[in-house]
Design a binder for these strands. Structure first.
Length: 879
RNA sequence: GGACGCGUAGCUCAGUGGUAGAGCACUGUGUUGACAUCGCAGGGGUCGCAGGUUCAAUCCCUGCCGCGUCCA
């Protein structure tokens, strides 16, 4: 029996364990068409946040739907080693437990610690995905640092190197002085902060003067300390203020160095003084200037932690100062020299590391780069020609824009946790790249080799996820079968980080796109629309919501709120509402069971003679069609809405109520049997259709209603085999309309719900009379009226179609209220009738509008006109 | 500065070239042994503003205002 109380916690985890233990997530379907999704691998350090809940709910919906539709559905799962994030977590833990730090314990011991940590804590997120109901292929769970993946990474690195698409280069990188590693452009976020713009006078050397007589050039900077590394001052070639001093020098204060005045396009005469200081080693633009004017050279004045280091002209008392302290000291020293023109307070843009939160320093180092521009070519054309499609399409523009302006990708990181770069150096600096040290040694001959200390950017391996997880570089059957994947579901925020790079690597190494469709969902925000963040304290923990409302309710909420191209503002009342929806279905199933309605024997609808049964079969069919369309269109909200309406507004509100008389004692046995069969079938189809969204509840009810195989592997609704039944729809629509109107009329004139009244009918067609007779029991039950003697006097008049139902209510009647009610209905009918008449009277409409629109207007006009007449007649009878 | 998105009921959001919808909230009410996590009935919107196209615009076009995001 189905319990009276609906308690999702009592069965959710039980069903998950059952499915997983019985290999339900990946049934053997060798002959079926594959359907493949690769999960965006969560960080192994991670715990499930609401964004994961959304992302994985949508993926699970697709996977379960296709599984029900007979596909060989495979959801490839695993976790990402998350280089920086994981290293930070473990380092923090070491610090908290007073253990020796990373550098104290050394590389090998530290990496060992991280593996230990992963073994202990790395399973958190996968456990949480299970709570959500994610039906992943856990038997083939992968990790971006497992043996197979390591092979893939090595092979990709070596091949790209041999193809000259990956190279070592000395250039400015985004240096994170806290983490002491290079990071990529994408890991830098620009923030606006309050800062100052310091205008400095650089004295001209050798007695030179500007045309205006000045003995100095004014340059302005937000970072005065970098002047210690200046190697030139640039001015516009045609700038009359400075043309005469180009080629001459200034005496760089504090350092005493002479640096040249050069002409370069970087100096914009329109901006400020028109002259700019050039610090090639600490500014991206200035490095470009150096590239055009190599003679000026460059001077590095910062160490890895962004402290001033010893360099040409840097006074000894600066060495070792943090950049902020050096800035103050430079300003103070310049002030003492009376070389500060002025200091302007203004908002400035500063680069910050997205992980460390500290100011990023452009720093000159040797790093490994991928020639992303080359790899981007095919990745661009693959989207242009539709081999991969973005949904919603608008994200394609974002993708194009970035891909068309892509910069070399810095892939080396000065970390210990990650894939160590397979490059070896000889003492004289020659480099050998190979998959193993032995192979490198073979290339290097007798030379002593030292391996590169660095590891690869985490995204370097993530980019291989769609094929690395399927066994590549081995040519496995899995790879042949499941690459390319069908859909990638992800947040738009990682289009650059991940999607673009998977496209590049997939096309390069597999010669095909990694997925046919990229579905980008929005961000989950709090109820006020604020981005959720730990620092704001407005995060919601999906696990808490699951405990409170059940995973199904959370899943339904996220599905219903996922509309294309919009972020989700999550409100708890919505989750509560869908928990109530689950309760509603639970109770409907309980009712079914108590009336002898059980599981159906076949996916085909039972033979049905009764209009109400034929009608619900049609409603199931229409809903299944709508759901199929919703899946085809990736309209998750439409999926949720359609099944919600069927369950609540059709099945529960009407069907179950309409069949109650058919099941009552003394009812026709054959009709009752038919009704039980149809009701059982319809309820089963509801469970099937709802299963992708609410897997736990539906599986539980599926088994409570009958003993049978699991719902997760059931068959989707056989829509093709179900004919349309317009006659049944017309019958039931008429009936629902009648009951609704009678109820409404009763309420408006304050007839107590308990009063059961007699009625007569006027002007009814034979069809209507037949319908009234056929549905007498239901009309009595739901409208609380039954045929009887109708006396003159106060009566309620309900106009429904061509018929008017007369319900005498004698002294109970509130004549004024009834008059007002009819008046209101009449006014509405007249208003619409006249609007339609106006349209039909307009030759422009009748001549130019589509014929079917004109026809519909004529029909509507006639119907409204007739209704108005009957309402007027009813009013006049009232007197 | 460039690009994109969004302004529809009190709130959160669907939607359509031809009478505007849902959930929640609100009001009134409780007859039927599935369900008060419920039922029934109801109120509430010049669809941001201004032009244009059209027989017809909330929907298409242009401009403006407001909000947001990404890139520089």
């Amino acid at each position: 029996m189905i319990d009276k109380i609906f308690d999702p916690a009592s069965f959710e985890q039980r069903w998950y364990a059952h499915w997983e233990q019985n290999a339900r997530f990946r049934p053997s379907r060798p002959d079926a068409k594959p359907f493949t999704i690769v999960i965006p691998p969560p960080n192994v350090t991670g715990s499930l946040h609401i964004g994961h809940a959304l992302d994985n709910t949508l993926q699970d919906l697709l996977i379960r739907w296709h599984r029900l539709n007979g596909r060989d559905a495979r959801w490839v799962v695993g976790t990402d080693h998350a280089g920086i994030a994981t290293q930070m977590v473990v380092e923090r833990q070491l610090a908290e437990s007073q253990q020796p730090g990373r550098s104290a314990m050394g590389r090998e011991a530290f990496v060992e610690k991280v593996w230990e940590w992963k073994a202990e804590s790395g399973g958190t997120i996968t456990g949480q995905l299970r709570r959500l109901g994610a039906s992943c292929d856990w038997e083939n769970e992968r990790f971006t640092m497992d043996d197979g993946f390591n092979q893939a990474v090595l092979k990709v690195f070596v091949e790209l190197y041999n193809q000259k698409l990956l190279y070592r280069d000395k250039r400015l990188v985004n240096w994170d002085p806290k983490l002491k590693t290079a990071i990529s452009d994408l890991e830098v976020e620009t923030r606006e902060v309050a800062g100052s713009f310091t205008h400095i006078r650089y004295p001209l050397a050798d007695g030179a003067r500007l045309p205006n007589g000045a003995d100095h050039i004014i340059v302005a900077t937000t970072r005065p300390e970098t002047m210690l590394g200046d190697t030139a001052v640039a001015v516009g070639a045609d700038d009359p203020r400075y043309a005469s001093v180009i080629g001459k020098h200034v005496l760089l204060p504090i350092t005493g160095r002479r640096i040249p005045i050069i002409a370069d396009e970087h100096a914009d005469p329109e901006l400020g003084s028109g002259a700019v200081k050039i610090t090639p080693a600490h500014d991206f633009n200035d490095w470009q200037v150096y590239e055009r004017n190599k003679a000026i050279g460059w001077i590095n004045i910062l160490d890895a932690e962004a402290r001033i280091c010893a360099a040409d002209g840097v006074p000894a008392d600066y060495v070792g100062l943090a950049r902020e302290d050096a800035r103050k000291k430079v300003v103070a020293d310049l002030e003492a020299l009376e070389l500060i023109e002025r200091i302007e307070q203004k908002t400035i843009q500063m680069p910050y590391g997205d992980r460390s939160g500290v100011v990023i320093e452009p720093w000159l180092t040797d790093q490994w780069y991928v020639n992303a521009a080359e790899l981007a070519k095919d990745a661009l054309s693959a989207v242009h020609d539709g081999r991969t499609q973005f949904v919603p399409k608008t994200w394609e523009k974002t993708y194009f824009n970035w891909m068309e302006n892509i910069q070399p990708w810095c892939v080396s990181r000065q970390l210990w946790w990650g894939h160590r770069i397979p490059a070896w150096y000889t003492p004289d600096g020659s480099v050998f790249v190979a998959e193993t040290e032995a192979k490198a040694q073979a290339q290097a001959g007798d030379a002593v080799l030292t391996r590169d200390e660095d590891v690869l950017d985490t995204w370097f391996s993530s980019a291989l996820w769609p094929f690395g997880t399927l066994g590549w570089p081995e040519q496995t059957p899995d790879l042949a079968r499941h690459y390319p994947g069908d859909v990638l579901v992800t947040g738009f925020d990682i289009i650059f980080f991940w999607v673009a790079r998977m496209m590049m690597q997939g096309l390069h190494f597999m010669d095909d796109v990694p997925f046919r469709t990229v579905y980008c969902h929005g961000l989950v925000r709090d109820a006020k629309g604020q981005k959720m963040s730990k620092s704001k304290g407005n995060t919601v923990d999906p696990l808490v919501l699951i405990d409170q409302y059940g995973a199904d309710a959370l899943r339904f909420t996220l599905t219903a709120m996922e509309t294309q191209g919009r972020d989700i503002k999550l409100s708890e009342s919505r989750i509560e509402g869908y928990r109530n929806f689950a309760t509603k279905l639970w109770n409907a199933a309980r009712f079914a069971q108590s009336n002898g309605i059980g599981g159906s024997a076949s996916p085909m609808p039972p033979a049905a003679s009764q209009p109400v049964n034929r009608w619900i079969i049609g409603e199931v069919r229409a809903t299944a069609r709508a759901l199929e369309q919703a899946i085809a269109d990736f309209r998750f909200d439409a999926y949720a809405d359609a099944i919600y309406k069927l369950v609540w507004s059709r099945f529960c509100d009407w069907y179950l109520e309409l069949i109650k008389p058919l099941l009552s004692e003394g009812a026709d046995q054959a009709i009752a049997a038919e009704t039980r069969a149809v009701a059982g079938w319809a309820l089963d189809q509801i469970l099937v259709m709802l299963h992708p969204v609410m897997p736990f509840l539906t599986e539980e009810l599926w088994h409570r209603l009958a003993e049978r195989d699991d719902l997760i592997l059931a068959q989707w609704v056989a829509t093709d085999a179900i004919p349309e039944d317009a006659a049944a729809s017309a019958d039931i629509d008429w009936l629902i309309g009648l009951i609704s109107e009678v109820r409404s009329a009763r309420t408006e004139v304050n007839v107590p719900p308990s009063a059961k009244l007699a009625y007569a009918v006027e002007g009814a067609s034979t069809e209507t009379q037949a319908r009234l007779a056929a549905n007498a029991a239901v009309i009595e039950r739901m409208a609380r009226i039954l045929p009887g003697e109708v006396a003159e006097g106060g009566r309620l008049q309900v106009v429904h179609g061509e018929a008017t139902i007369l319900i005498p209510i004698g002294d109970v009647v509130d004549l004024a209220a009834e008059k007002a009610r009819l008046d209101k209905a009449l006014t509405a009918a007249i208003k619409e009738r006249d609007a339609l008449a106006g349209r039909l009277g307009n030759p422009g409409f009748t001549e130019k509008a589509k014929p079917e629109a004109v026809e519909k207007a004529r029909e509507d006009h006639a119907a409204r006109n007739a209704e108005a007449e009957r309402l007027a007649a009813a009013l006049s009878r009232l007197g």
